[in-house]
Design a binder for these strands. Structure first.
Length: 292
DNA sequence: CAGTCCTCCTGTCGGC
DNA sequence: TGCCGACAGGAGGACT
């Protein structure tokens, strides 16, 4: 589920709770999520401090004070809930014992962070910091779209020679990190590019050293903008995280095309209708009229 | 090799 | 109301 903006919002919400305090207690309710959890997972976390909570693509990274990194991925349905010490415990309030509450972290001041994941596509791992970027899931991951390293030139390089539809190419985390089904649809809409277009058609044929095409520039900007806007919207939901059930990460704001099959295109002057198609077995929403 | 399909798992929703 | 199929924000492995 959560794509880059949701994971970033979750990071910002968890940061003040988890950073700096020793982890006093970890409950692990099952041996595996999507993959087996590391051996002695709970014991290895107990007593450690998360010095910094980072993010890479859709991964949350807890940099521990012993040189290890707690790598967390939320899959489709993973979420975190913060329960402050002394929070009213009552019927229906989260206490970490729900059927899909798989991991509970407790820190020194008594705050608990509950990881819930009904579908169990999420996972956690402990890896040594020096090998974080050279092994495992981060090894081949593409550039951070909001970082300095992301540019039309870099995107063009990643798309060069790709015959797959643009939609499929952008879902590939090796091309650019953090995009998922929703934000790929939204970015393509903003860029006015069809999800069905072959990825390599954004790249100038004349080999290398060519300036990026206008399409590649547009897409680069659209990706940055849509993610930035979503993070800003998510940040505004953060103020709610501490009350109610403390759930983080499931904000949804107005998408222009996602899940809007049959609705009129909202682009000024466009008379098109949003259409749903299936690509690589997943829904794509776009306006066939203004996305070319 | 690249591209596409399938699968893991559970919950929810719409149609009949 | 109840049952059943379709679908869900991810990603890796199998297949072509």
């Amino acid at each position: 589920m959560p794509e880059l903006p949701e994971v970033e919002t979750i990071r910002q919400g968890l940061m003040p709770v988890l950073e700096g305090q020793p982890i006093t207690h970890v409950v692990q309710r099952r041996p595996d999520l999507r993959y087996p959890l590391p051996q002695r997972f709970a014991a290895r976390l107990k007593g450690r401090r998360i010095e910094r909570l980072g993010r890479r693509g859709k991964y949350l990274l807890g940099f521990l004070d012993d040189g290890m990194v707690l790598v967390m991925h939320l899959g489709m349905s993973g979420r975190f809930t913060i329960v402050k010490p002394g929070a009213a415990a009552g019927l229906g309030s989260p206490n970490g014992s729900g059927p899909h509450d798989h991991i509970v972290f407790e820190v020194e001041d008594g705050t608990r962070v509950i990881f819930t994941d009904p579908r169990r596509f999420g996972f956690m791992d402990l890896v040594p910091e020096p090998s974080l970027e050279t092994t495992g899931p981060l090894k081949a991951m593409g550039p951070e779209p909001l970082g300095n390293g992301f540019s039309a030139a870099l995107l063009s390089q990643a798309l060069r020679g790709k015959r797959a539809p643009l939609k499929a190419a952008l879902l590939d985390q090796r091309v650019v990190a953090g995009l998922g089904n929703i934000y790929v649809c939204e970015a393509l809409y903003r860029a006015g590019l069809s999800p069905r277009r072959q990825a390599e058609t954004l790249v100038s044929k004349a080999a290398r050293r060519q300036p990026p095409t206008a399409r590649a520039e547009r897409l680069t900007r659209a990706i940055r903008d849509v993610l930035t806007d979503a993070i800003a919207a998510g940040g505004s939901t953060l103020r709610d995280y501490a009350h109610a059930d403390g759930g983080l990460g499931y904000f949804q704001h107005g998408f222009a095309v996602y899940d809007r099959d049959g609705e009129p295109c909202s682009r000024a002057g466009c008379r098109g209708t949003i259409k749903r198609i299936v690509q690589s077995n997943r829904s794509t929403f776009y306006c066939p009229h203004c996305q070319r």
